[in-house]
Nucleic acid binder design. Sequence first.
DNA 1: AAAAATCTTGACTGGTTGGTCAAGTCTGTT
DNA 2: AACAGACTTGACCAACCAGTCAAGATTTTT
Lengths: 202, 202
Amino acid sequence: MTTRIQKRNRKRILDAALEVFSAQGFRGATLDQIAAEAGLSKPNLLYYFDNKEAIHRLLMEDLLASWLEPLRAMNPQGEPRDEIMGYMRRKLQMSRAFPRESRLFANEILQGAPRLGDFIARDLRMLVDDRAALIARWSREGRLAPVDPYHLIFSIWALTQHYADFDAQIRLIRDGTDPLDGAEPFLERLFERLIAPEPRAP
Amino acid sequence: MTTRIQKRNRKRILDAALEVFSAQGFRGATLDQIAAEAGLSKPNLLYYFDNKEAIHRLLMEDLLASWLEPLRAMNPQGEPRDEIMGYMRRKLQMSRAFPRESRLFANEILQGAPRLGDFIARDLRMLVDDRAALIARWSREGRLAPVDPYHLIFSIWALTQHYADFDAQIRLIRDGTDPLDGAEPFLERLFERLIAPEPRAP
DNA sequence: AAAAATCTTGACTGGTTGGTCAAGTCTGTT
DNA sequence: AACAGACTTGACCAACCAGTCAAGATTTTT
């Protein structure tokens, strides 16, 4: 049974850990930093989680579901262009709402995916293969421009996650204005032009 | 005066440090890892560099020049579409030739640009502002499609660097094939379609 | 109110990390 | 060969780090 206090403190710890791990990576983060950020003592942290690894693992597990969902939500029965634009919009929305989660994921990949390797090679890969096949079919049917489906998916990842992962850089260049200002119409146009099929020869 | 041995060992150390820093970030990397990677003892490392910070700083300084150059090489007198496509191609080439440098930079930005903040807010920003103005002019003159110049530059960064920074992920999904396979034609097409001006109304 | 269960922390430990140093080895010059 | 300067390293140190523990404080249950 989990008490009221447990709920509150576990949440505090995970939020603090997300802040620190997403900025410093697993090795670069310390329990002292996380404890300070959470407003708890270090032994108290370890009363709620077995060790540093366990905190990180839980964050990762929470990440996984939300990471697959937008792509999984793509509907094979839908209108191709709406489905792809919808996926792009959902990913962009996630970068806006969960930038730290995006950076946590980026850190994991930069380090060579030591903890998420299995998930990526199995779950994510299966889903991507499936969606790539779907997009390839749509292209073959002339409902999308002929386009490499894997690179299309990667380009959606790259463009949407960039706004969260490189937030610090964009802020410094654009002098504090929200990095995502104007991003949505720009990306709409970009992908619209990329996937719009040429008018068919009669 | 720098001797033959100094030259060789400094290079070894910087190469090893690039390997470790780009994968672990500054805080996550240890001198022992770098020393092992370089095939030298730790005190020997510190015979050639004052401290950990100094090694990292030198890597960063080397990075700066090569980071600005492709954008600086954009020619205001050139043909707009060639200049933008050329810039994209140069950036992609850099991701192919220097993936570790790209990841080193990504790590720095993920951490909030603690060491490169000044450079970004001053040098990079000035250059980007200048090129953005150039692109805006080209758009106004009808030589490019009307497009937000900042987001155009960011999209080139996002798409080209993604192949270096998320290399581990792409490899796991594409089962070992070179992540950059097919990337160049895909990006050519993407940016070609994005910036091609609509035929003018007569 | 008192007992039980839960929560909190100061003080500690063993291992790691960045960095020092004195003593030794190697290399180039005469 | 012998000397000077350059290079290398084992042994060490203080600070930091993940994690432990016993003792006390707080909350919940009876």
